[in-house]
């Protein structure tokens, strides 16, 4: 989902850069209000964690492999605004150091994986928690939210590419969401397993964050 430079046309990348820039500014303000300077080393290390976790590949049917995105997980653990900042820093490093995704497409990537993948995914989780209740419900909800976050991010990516005239909308939307519906299962399973692991080992970490 890391779009290279040149795949988006000028109006698309400029609009998405403006949207993501605004979202980053709002998130900086929000996290500054609630957490202060203590959060800076923490956010840096969590960003490093998401980065390292993304390097672990898991197998998908047919010899291909996918990797973890971690947007919803970061948002559940550290709050939605912090998660946008974390995804932003991860994407900046991937872009500058690994050329994974272009500079002009950075706004689009932050929109897809930070705003949709983490922020929207988190609020899907919050809304689901209000609807489905029970002792095991946070895991079911986290699974659905992170699965949807992957599909929505992939859909956004294919819409952006087709608005730019690079790929046809209908076929790419079907193909991208189809493939990511499978990758999303892995994402969902990892998210709930990590949450249940943390609940066993350091349950206090799950209680802490309520923005």
């Amino acid at each position: 989902m890391h779009i290279p430079d040149g795949f988006l046309d000028t109006k698309t990348w400029m609009a998405l850069t403006a949207i993501s820039g605004t979202a980053i500014a709002v998130s900086l303000k929000q996290t500054g209000k609630t957490l202060g300077e203590k959060q800076i080393p923490m956010m840096g290390i969590t960003a490093a964690f998401i980065f390292a976790a993304q390097m672990l590949n898991f197998p998908i049917a047919g010899g291909t492999s996918g990797h973890f995105m971690g947007g919803v997980l970061a948002a559940i653990l550290l709050g939605p605004f912090t998660a946008i900042l974390i995804m932003t820093t991860v994407l900046i490093v991937q872009c500058l150091i690994f050329q994974d995704g272009g500079v002009t497409a950075l706004g689009a990537s932050i929109f897809n994986m930070g705003i949709i993948g983490a922020f929207v995914g988190y609020y899907i989780y919050v809304i689901l928690n209000k609807i489905i209740k029970g002792s095991k419900s946070i895991f079911i909800n986290a699974f659905i939210a992170s699965w949807l976050s992957i599909i929505l991010a992939a859909a956004a990516c294919s819409v952006e590419l087709s608005i730019s005239g690079t790929v046809p909308l209908k076929t790419s939307l079907i193909a991208m969401t189809g493939v990511h519906a499978i990758i999303g299962i892995g994402e969902g399973l990892i998210t709930i397993a990590v949450l249940s692991f943390i609940k066993k080992v350091r349950p206090d970490l799950l209680e802490l964050r309520h923005e």
Partner: peptide
């Protein structure tokens, strides 16, 4: 089972990272 092992690795990685973050701060 394979997924479960990856999850334990990621979970442990998070806790180590978090605790390191606290100590660094």
């Amino acid at each position: 089972r394979q997924i479960k092992i990856i999850c334990n690795i990621i979970g442990l990685l998070f806790i180590r990272a978090y605790e390191r973050g606290e100590r660094v701060y």
